[in-house]
């Protein structure tokens, strides 16, 4: 579920960073406005609770496996959507920084998939169905239904973002077919876990759950927000999908600041390739590889014969240099210490 950086293009990652960053800023403002100062420590501790709660597993009825709480829907029920979104975003940030669980570039995507969707789509649904009757059979159903919807939407987000990035070759359709059933199951487990914990809390301390609705949300602004987000993201995705099959050129342009750099880059390659043909050792391999190259990657025609061989040699040498540098840097302070 956590996306890694390695499969994401900067364009998609950047777009989702912007969306999630905006949401964080927005929710931070909301939390500050409705302040409720006690939320400051409560949010922090609840984030730690979700982490710690994952140490406790339950066996999933009817199967041999076990599951635990992911916590998105639960946080929304306990803290209200604004605070819950910030807590989830902070959990994902810590996971990405300390466990490499989801990349840094992918953080925007992960916050959107696992924060925005459960909190601003699944939770309003939960509220709509239960109308405050926590612990009732209706609430169990609501919790399962909304958790499933939240997770499936999240999985769909993963697929969309990966496909739009164009680094993985996995076709959209089969990716969906793999991801959706898995997340349907995870959603069921999440819904069960959420319902059982919420109903426990409701029995033990009903006032905790009753205190929230005042700070709650109206459905309409959420729907509007969702529509806007969908438009932005859909627009961005379809633009990448149509103009740039792999969304790469655009990002190169963005990073290097102009289209010319990509062009000059290619020129250098061509130029060097020509130079390479004159001076190359192993000319056979170079030529042979070059032909295949030209056919295979029309998306990046600048990769050429010479580039491959010299890339191989230079690449391994560079790798060697990296290792040596690492060792040298490591030795240095020790020598100082002596």
């Amino acid at each position: 579920m956590h996306m890694a950086d390695a499969l994401l293009s900067p364009a998609v990652g950047g777009t989702l960073w912007a969306v999630s960053g905006g949401l964080i800023a927005f929710c931070a403002r909301k939390v500050k406005q409705t302040m409720q100062d006690h939320l400051v420590p409560l949010m922090g501790v609840m984030g730690a609770f979700v982490f710690a709660g994952q140490m406790i597993n339950f066996s999933i009825p009817g199967t041999g496996s076990s599951g635990h709480l992911c916590g998105g829907l639960m946080l929304a029920i306990l803290l209200g959507p604004w605070a819950a979104f910030l807590v989830i975003a902070s959990i994902l940030t810590i996971q990405s920084l300390f466990f490499a669980d989801g990349g840094v570039l992918a953080l925007g995507c992960n916050i959107f998939n696992m924060g925005f969707l459960p909190v601003f789509v699944a939770y309003p649904l939960y509220k709509l169905i239960t109308k405050g009757r926590h612990g009732s059979p209706l609430a169990w159903a609501a919790s399962i239904v909304s958790a499933v919807i939240g997770l499936v939407l999240g999985a769909f987000g993963v697929v969309l973002e990966t496909t739009a990035s164009g680094i993985s070759e996995l076709p959209f359709g089969s990716f969906v077919l793999v991801m959706l059933p898995i997340h349907l199951a995870i959603g069921l487990v999440e819904g069960l876990a959420t319902a059982t914990v919420v109903s426990f809390v409701f029995r033990a301390r009903p006032e905790i759950l009753q205190a929230e609705p005042e700070a709650g949300i109206r459905i309409r602004p959420i729907l509007v927000g969702l529509a806007v987000a969908a438009l932005v993201i859909g627009g961005a995705f379809s633009w990448f999908a149509s103009t740039h099959p792999d969304g790469l050129e655009w990002s190169v342009v963005r990073v290097s600041g102009s289209e010319e750099v990509a062009g000059s880059n290619a020129e250098i390659h061509q130029h060097l390739a020509g130079f390479q043909r004159k001076v190359a050792f192993l000319p056979d391999y170079g030529f042979k590889a070059g032909e295949a190259e030209e056919e295979a990657c029309d998306a990046w025609p600048s990769v050429s014969a010479g580039a491959t061989v010299s890339g191989l040699v230079g690449g391994s040498l560079t790798l060697g240099l990296v290792v040596l540098t690492g060792l040298a840097l490591r030795l240095r302070p020790v020598r100082q210490a002596k």
Partner: peptide
Amino acid sequence: SGALGLRVYGSLVGQLLLRSMDRADRIY
């Protein structure tokens, strides 16, 4: 195994949750 039945699980995690909330209150 360490995996629990759903009912026990609910009360354990619920306990942890309530304790955490109490702690948040004391921190406040």
